[in-house]
Design a binder for these strands. Sequence first.
DNA 1: GATGAATGAGACTTCATTCAT
DNA 2: AATGAATGAAGTCTCATTCAT
Lengths: 228, 228, 228, 228
Amino acid sequence: MTREARARQLIDAARAVLNEKGYENLVLADVAKRAGIVEGAIYRHFSGKRELMITAAEAWFEEILGEVRPDASITATADRLRHVVARALTLIRQEPALARFVLSDVRADPAYRTMRLYDLNRRYASAVMDVLRDAVEAGEFNDDVPVALLRDMIFGCIERQTWSFLHGQGDFPPDDAADAIARLIYRGMVAAPMEAGKQGLDGALRRIEDVAGRIERAAATFETSSGP
Amino acid sequence: MTREARARQLIDAARAVLNEKGYENLVLADVAKRAGIVEGAIYRHFSGKRELMITAAEAWFEEILGEVRPDASITATADRLRHVVARALTLIRQEPALARFVLSDVRADPAYRTMRLYDLNRRYASAVMDVLRDAVEAGEFNDDVPVALLRDMIFGCIERQTWSFLHGQGDFPPDDAADAIARLIYRGMVAAPMEAGKQGLDGALRRIEDVAGRIERAAATFETSSGP
Amino acid sequence: MTREARARQLIDAARAVLNEKGYENLVLADVAKRAGIVEGAIYRHFSGKRELMITAAEAWFEEILGEVRPDASITATADRLRHVVARALTLIRQEPALARFVLSDVRADPAYRTMRLYDLNRRYASAVMDVLRDAVEAGEFNDDVPVALLRDMIFGCIERQTWSFLHGQGDFPPDDAADAIARLIYRGMVAAPMEAGKQGLDGALRRIEDVAGRIERAAATFETSSGP
Amino acid sequence: MTREARARQLIDAARAVLNEKGYENLVLADVAKRAGIVEGAIYRHFSGKRELMITAAEAWFEEILGEVRPDASITATADRLRHVVARALTLIRQEPALARFVLSDVRADPAYRTMRLYDLNRRYASAVMDVLRDAVEAGEFNDDVPVALLRDMIFGCIERQTWSFLHGQGDFPPDDAADAIARLIYRGMVAAPMEAGKQGLDGALRRIEDVAGRIERAAATFETSSGP
DNA sequence: GATGAATGAGACTTCATTCAT
DNA sequence: AATGAATGAAGTCTCATTCAT
């Protein structure tokens, strides 16, 4: 077996074990056993447990990014948003443990910003960020909510949905969830003309009602004092 | 020292250590040392590490729930939402490690649904859920997005914001974040702005006609009393 | 068993294993087995292998230094030298592996100068250094050889003698070796033998002239009394 | 590449790695990499790590011994001594790790006496031993210190000096050190001619004084008895 | 002869848990 | 109730050596 094949095998084994046991409970013995070699042999390919896991995460991201085919036919913000959210949802759903590892563990590394995973993650998240930024720049979205917050909302929601799903808490239809998330974000962010109009109307109405009230009271007074 | 006091002391110590070192690095020796006893004594009060941590989480939830004072003066959905989100943000920010423990670890327990923490967590989350459900029932929110998804979005976002903050990635002003989250959710969910606008106009029209009727009646009063 | 007793037991076990196997081949399993506990228990008392060994070395030095009884009755440099060399020889002979550990391993530690062992070692070596320095200051020893070199010579020789002996290369009578070393150092260092010899000759010359004068005078007596 | 060339290459690589990393940290992977082959190939040439290192040490000794050109022009003991000490110092300084390996490790081998290294080492040390023995036999050196002790003193000092130097403890000028060592050994061992002379002179003087005293007394007697 | 992946024994270390006192 | 030393299983990692190709 070639060097690359073995490394690939180890990465695959690591991914499989990770998704079965979660990162905290992943032990190299399991990875080695699944790859069909002994523990020590792992160190011929990776400098240690962490490097193996990071490489596995990188491989995952590269797989993801390699599959990307920006669909130019989708132009409407709402559609683009639904599309990227659905994609992110699907991916994380497939490899939740790996996603968690990157999100929770690697990101805490002081050197995270200098790691390749940082760039890969940025490129991965940029599909979402691009849609958001484009919409804000085009004036289609309000600019009163930071895009970073929107991103956190989207991915936070995705993580929770995924996580809940994987632990048996209710069903998780990726497309419906993507629809709902995208719709919510879109409607919440789209530069809300109706709101303003309705508020203006309310104010005007309240003033009219005020006046009507005062007239009624005046009329009542008048009636009483000038009774027949 | 009474049995309860000692147990309480252990729970407090567990919380403190958890927030200092994180769940992965929590060791009972640290907890015992902080509580001023030896490791072995923990087992007089708890059956093991996990029970101690779960009890600590329960205590935290109870503390939180005990503090709740539903503010009847806040009635508008947008305000209620901002309020409960801000509260959740603040709480998680104060005890991120405990929150993580419940969210990531306990929830994965096969027996989670039968645990007291499950109920406590539900009651805790119900402050948010109530606002959302009320709004949906009142027709103020659309019913095309499941409230569970909204909840995940809110808490997912909160978790992400908190997490980033706790790892030095950018600042995290709780009030601003609560504002932005609540605003986004509200605007995104408020019942069909097009429809709502239209309903609002209809209502306004009806009220205007109402007012017109009252004014007419008032005018009739003047007319009658000052008749020829 | 008390904490101190167990620590002491571990230190003793470490010393024993060290002297049997040498530092490179010392494994904690052996130490633990000899102390009658399991490996992990070592870490209740020492932070790791190195700390155990360093503590053992410190204990050894303290033992040594505690035994020191500067013998004020020995004043002559040659005697003092023989005395301290014999002492050092005996001690190292008893614990060659510990001595080697300090000499070869600890001394290479970048933090060596800040360690307690550094001070202990200095105090231990000071018995020899003091004799050498006193002799130089008193003019009894030449000052053309640095005392540090002398110290290296003495301890280097001691190490070699000890080492050879401990590996079955010939016998090693400590007292004879101490005698020989001390004599060699003394004779090699004693101030300016040429000068001393010359002074001796001058004195002898003066006395010979004295005697010659006396003989002349005596001869004169014979001459006078047996005159013609 | 011929068998011999490859073996030579491995030996050179072993020496280089040994001097860079020290014996404790030498791993065959490094040696193989430096030799430009893979680890497994080492076993085509040597039965294992130890044999490789021993062969490397042998090669070193042979190199040394091959360079020796006894300089017949140097005849005075003091000069010869200084010369051989300087040479030993220089060699050990150049290959301290190899020297340490032989001194500390190989010598501990139960079979050391039957190994080729034993003979090579003897031949190497014989340059020093010859000078010492010649001087003793010629009566130039005292015979009250075993030459083996002198040898240990010289090499022990050299080892210490070298070792200290390599760990940054003070400077180490080979020539000065050789001077000092040789001078010390010489002065300490040279068959104290002044001393002996002085003692002989003293004895002779005392006898002369004796005689002078007897003559004086006789003269006095004579004078008295043969008084006028 | 060389390759180099694989082996396997074992090192150090960690820590939840037990138990005699 | 508390003590705290001891346990033991498990973890990560190292490296000389082997062997099919």
